[in-house]
Amino acid sequence: MAPHCWRRASRSAIDGGSRERGKPYAMTGGTLSLDGVTIALGFRRLVDGLTLAIAPGEVVTVMGPSGSGKSTLLAYVAGFLDRRVFTASGRLRLGGDDMVDVPPERRRIGMLFQDDLLFPHLSVRGNLLFGLAPGGSAELRRARVDEALAAADLAGFGDRDPATLSGGQRARIALLRVLLSAPRALLLDEPFSKLDAELRVQFRIHVFGELRRAGLPTLMVTHDPADAAAAGGKVVAL
């Protein structure tokens, strides 16, 4: 992909530098494009012929009341849509690669949920190592994770039990975890709705800053107009 994406990626707080040495999980930052995507539940069309192109670093917001199919759309893009319940047609491409038949774990489309979903049995570092793209020796991986923690002002948190952290810290670790997995695109499922008002504003700024630096095409689902305003991108109503 275009070299400017590489440069953007290498400035990211979470990029420890090893990617420049040609690791296979380098961020490639292609465009996430939906082409005539239709998702139906029985005879009811939840998403009807949606066409979207999300450029690297761009955040597109999908808004709509609950039950309008926002989460279904995210499940479709992530690859979790239950094909026996829903029928879907249209094309989904990421950087030119067709994604429709790719299993979720190979799409490299990261996802942030309402809850942080940090794995309760692993330490903070364990969670980040789980997310960190494969490759490299154990020491190198550990160093990468600690470096990323330090860059996110969370130095020294590696050995902590996730259950002992504040909501804001947990949310930031969850973001760090998904970014360390070197995704090519990102999905946000109402990622700020569970945070209290003050924290929400801070975390929003933090997330969108990181996303822009990482140069990821991002699709966000929300019912909060303030999220859409902060994202500053296109808004699609369902």
Binding site: F80, F113, F119, V178
Partner: peptide
């Protein structure tokens, strides 16, 4: 789902 989107089989 979270683990799968992080690339875990």
């Amino acid at each position: 789902r979270s683990a799968a989107s992080l690339g875990a089989s």
